[in-house]
Design a binder for these strands. Structure first.
Lengths: 195, 195, 195, 195
DNA sequence: AATGAATGAGTCTTCATTCAT
DNA sequence: TATGAATGAAGACTCATTCAT
């Protein structure tokens, strides 16, 4: 009885807000902007979300969960660490780069709204374990300690995200394929193998 | 004298705003916060700056100019590219890392208020020319093209800044000295020499 | 059976609302508060009551009717005006004082939602007639005219209620037994007899 | 320099709000009502008061302080306790009754916004000391203990205020002069003297 | 009848900027 | 020039009530 909560509306609010937050920033996007853009009445925003802050939080949380799940899928589809690495580079990263809105939000506001450090740690661990297996399998002597790898991965990941963001929104003179190429070459150099 | 007093006020506004913007963000800092913190009357803020936006712009612009000048000073103090590189690593970077407030502002809001891409380009060019001389002087065959170096420098620079920011404000499990160490090692690996 | 269930719901709404209105006030109590506290669906509130206002009105109306009925019962149980007076003082007043929630609502909002003056008049008449019979029976010469008695009863009644309210909710330094004692002594003084 | 805060505006806001609060109640009076009625811009309300709640608090606080001061003046103007009592009855009470708006606010909302019990205690002490001197001077044996007097004064005061409120706003059948008369007679009875 | 999502007018409050003094 | 009161559009959010299911 009574109307059931409408999943489509929730999704519409999230999608619209994500675009707006990415374009204009969280603070420059008003609830009234979201209302105009979605065509929903103000009240409806609040039947689906406690407040404006919760909207960003959910965008980040669900966006990240999605990325994470996709990566896990790729990792589970093979045992070979090299294939895992390839999946990471050829499928996961481009997929992530497509979600520029999420990247924007993550880099701009996520710090205040979600534990970004936990997410980075999750990711770092997964990649580190792949690289280690890869090294083991191919008899590669890694020149970096665990801690060094950790630092490297964090710096790379944040750097790549930010570079992609700038690549799309400014005249930085660097393209996304070039960034992809850089990532690939770096890994190849570090691991001494072709991907 | 009166002039000096005015400069003091301007500087006070900039310093206070910088701290506040870095701590609470641009949008969560009100002019009235700046007024309370500086003890100046509201009107004064507007005799020194056109509006709130101009305050961030000046903070970023002057902050960057300062960094840039410091780097140039170091570069001019020697002809030896290795010494230049060392100055970069041992003086410039730590100096930059000390200005965490500026880093915070640059990464969070700068995009909207200043041409960060131009600044990155400036920096990239300087470093690139150092590395090239270094390679030439030491007969190192650089394995990266100019474009690749550009991409690499951008990714590294942004990644390092963001990592430092996170290192200070969250529990990311990575310290600034570790980040410094990573930078050094990366350069040594890439250039095949000790710094 | 189904009917009984409905009566239960209606009663639950009234009881819960009464507590909430007394605790937080009518305007600080939202329908949603009543919903949370009762566990009933919002819609149910509106199948039992036209709107929020009607809930207070019913609380006051039924609460008063109950008090009135109890008083009448006591009065009917005896012919002796002295016993009536005693019933009034020893049973009715303490009973009323126990319904602090009703007192709170009556004093705070009743004016807007119910004809409190009619209720006061009803009560005043009953008490006045008791006192008159008492005076007659005991050959007491009342020093107050009818009008004066009316004023006195109104002032006393309102003053007592408000004092009880304050006694319970603030640190007024006066207890309910002390108020009871004052009432008794006043009547004894006025009527020149022991109760 | 700059405009000085305008005492007239502050007074206008207080006066207007007092009337509105008394007429429609605190919760039924919106800031926007105050704005319409005063003709001031919204912002101005907030340059003079922190928020809506502060407006009531100030109304009550300043209103009470005024009453209190007036009473003190009367008390200081004479040493004779009988004259003090007369001042109380013939000047202070009528003055208070004229400020019906304040009475309304005091009885309706004061509990939540001001320590009404402290105010009652202040008043009670003053009156009690007058009555005691009076008793002493005239060799009257007071039949009430200090505590009893306290209770009596509280009940009387609250009862009178509430009765006056009802007398003005409803059809309670009792007039303010009649209430005044009752007060006078009660005191005369209790103290055994003419006022 | 029962339900609870839907609605949007209305709430209080903020705040960058202006301008009278 | 220095000041800080004045301004009002815009902000996020609430909530009694309705009505589709």
């Amino acid at each position: 009885m009574a109307r059931a909560k409408n999943e489509d509306k929730r999704a519409l609010i999230l999608l619209t807000s994500k675009t707006l937050f990415a374009q204009k920033g969280f603070f420059n996007t008003s609830i009234s902007d979201i209302v105009s853009e979605t065509g929903l009445p103000v009240g409806s925003i609040y039947t689906y979300f406690k407040n404006k802050e919760e909207i960003v939080k959910v965008i980040v949380e669900e966006g990240w969960a999605d990325l994470h799940a996709r990566l896990l899928d790729h990792f589970r589809s093979t045992k070979d660490p090299l294939e895992k690495l390839q999946a990471l580079i050829e499928t996961f990263l481009p997929g992530l780069f497509d979600d520029l809105d999420l990247i924007n939000i993550l880099l701009a506001e996520a710090l205040d709204y979600t534990r970004i450090e936990e997410k980075l740690e999750e990711l770092t661990k997964m990649i580190f374990s792949v690289l280690r297996s890869l090294a083991k399998n191919n008899d590669i002597k890694l020149e970096y300690s665990k801690k060094e790898m950790e630092v490297a991965l964090i710096v790379y990941f944040l750097g790549i995200l930010h570079a992609v963001k700038l690549a799309r929104s400014t005249d930085i003179g660097v393209s996304i394929p070039e960034i992809m190429e850089f990532v690939k070459k770096s890994i190849e150099k570090t691991m001494g193998l072709k991907v």
